[in-house]
Every structure is written in C-alpha cells, then in structure tokens.
C-alpha cells in the first residue's frame, strides 16, 4: 500500500544555511505520527515544505504516491493535506462561526459562490455548528476570533485545520503554552477528530506524544536520527543522547 505521505531525501537551505539535510520518512495511512526534536531542529520548516508554504531545495514529497513538492498550498490542500500553525493563524476579525465556515467552504464545493447566502446554506451551517460543539466553542459562536482566550484560540486553530475533512492532518505544536488540564483536553480532542485520518504532529509535550503517537520520529538539526514505535525510540541511545536524555533519566 502506498504510504499516505512519503518524503525522499528532502533538503532545504536558506541561503547557505542548511536546515533540512536529507530527510526520508514514510507515514502510513491511518497512523498517528509524532515528530519531536529540540528547538530550531527544523520541524516547522519540514511542515512548511510538506504543506507547500516553502519550496524544497531538493527531494521528493509524495501524498498518496503523488509528488506535491513545490506545489501551491491551495493545490496541496485540495489534494487532501491540511496543516495547523505553531503561531496561531486565523481570521481575527471574523466570528468564530465564520472562521469555521471559511474552513468548510472549499471542501463543500462553494468556491467563490457570490450567488449563495451563507446563512441559508443548511449543510454548511450544520457542519459549522457541529464543529463548534466539538471544539467546545458553541458559547463563543458570535465572538470575534481575536477576542478568544489563548486556549480557545488554539482550539479554533485545530478546528480550522481539521474542519474541512482532509485525510492527512499536520499539527504544529497543538498544545503549546497550555497547562496540564488544557493539554489533556486538547489531546482527547485531537484523538477524537483525527479518528480514521493520518496525523503527523510536532509536539514538545512528552505526555501528549506518548499518549497519542503510534510512531515517533526524532529530528535533530535537519537529520532524522530515529523513527519507530514509542518504546523503541525511547530506548534508542542516539535519541537519549541527543534529545530525550534529560527526560528519560
């Protein structure tokens, strides 16, 4: 079976600085995969390459066997890959409901329909309300997104990413800056909404990583130094030395 996502010898340099140095990785369909690594390892850059935000310097990225490297973000999204942002990124002057509707419009086939009224579209609004419910944002439905609390903003960020129903989901530090309770709730939410999907997640919180991931990859300064089941990665001496050392001890 073709992997949901495959990277083959992907390189990325900014000028002379080589940030991603030959990453090869296969993500199986339906697995939950965590990418961990120290700050500045290139995790976000890797997501930027996969999602089309940045062009690769060399290498191949394939979604369901189809090369997608250097294609535009919207093309990649239409092919079924969606991502969230480490730094929250939504439409701050639109209401929470409208943010979610924006995420649903393209997948539901509306495109630039200027002959349809949003409020009259039953299917769209029903889907948006369901997402509000799932994200526990129903009470904040009509509030401007920019006025949400930090945890609510993170929930909306995840909602924007997943609402459109893409089969491959990339989440960049979805629990960053959360306290234990919030992180646990977010973990449960991610588990629920990525049911039956392929998830790739960058995460620093080891509770979240080991609670959620089927497999883990470790990225250190642009190199993938290990990839495998959580137990194996935890036991890997190279990983312990490079990254997990402090926590495993």
């Amino acid at each position: 079976m073709t992997p949901a996502l495959a990277l083959r010898d992907v390189h990325k340099s900014f000028g002379a600085t080589r940030i991603i140095q030959g990453v090869s990785l296969e993500i199986r369909r339906g697995e939950r995969h965590a990418i961990i690594g120290p700050n500045g390892a290139g995790k976000t850059t890797l997501f930027n390459l996969i999602s089309g935000r940045l062009p690769v310097s060399s290498g191949v990225i394939a979604l369901n066997g189809r090369p997608i490297q250097n294609r535009s973000p919207q093309k990649i999204r239409r092919l079924g890959l969606t991502r969230s942002f480490q730094i929250i990124s939504f439409f701050h002057r639109l209401s929470v409901l409208d943010n979610l509707r924006c995420a649903l419009l393209w997948p539901l086939g509306y495109r630039v329909a200027f002959w349809r009224l949003l409020d009259r579209e039953r299917r769209l609004n029903q889907a948006a309300e369901e997402w509000l419910e799932r994200l526990a944002l129903t009470a904040r439905r009509d509030v401007q997104a920019g006025a949400l609390s930090y945890a609510e903003q993170r929930a909306l960020e995840i909602g924007l990413t997943v609402a459109g129903g893409a089969e491959v989901v990339l989440l960049d530090e979805p629990t960053a800056g959360m306290d234990r309770g919030e992180a646990d709730r977010t973990t449960a939410l991610i588990r629920e909404i990525t049911q039956g999907k392929t998830l790739v997640m960058v995460e620093h919180d080891m509770n979240v990583v080991f609670g959620l991931a089927d497999r883990i990859s470790v990225l250190v300064y642009g190199h993938l130094i290990a990839s495998g089941a959580p137990g194996d990665v935890r036991g890997d001496p190279a990983v312990q030395e490079a990254y997990l050392g402090a926590e495993a001890a």
Partner: peptide, 15 residues
C-alpha cells in the same frame, strides 16, 4: 474578509 485578515491562511483552506 478572510483574505483581508490573513491572506496566507486562506491558501491552506484550499482558496
């Protein structure tokens, strides 16, 4: 309006 608020995010929603 979404484009006005955040033109980049729009692309990752398919537009």
């Amino acid at each position: 309006e979404a484009c006005r608020d955040n033109h980049e995010r729009v692309r990752f929603l398919g537009y």
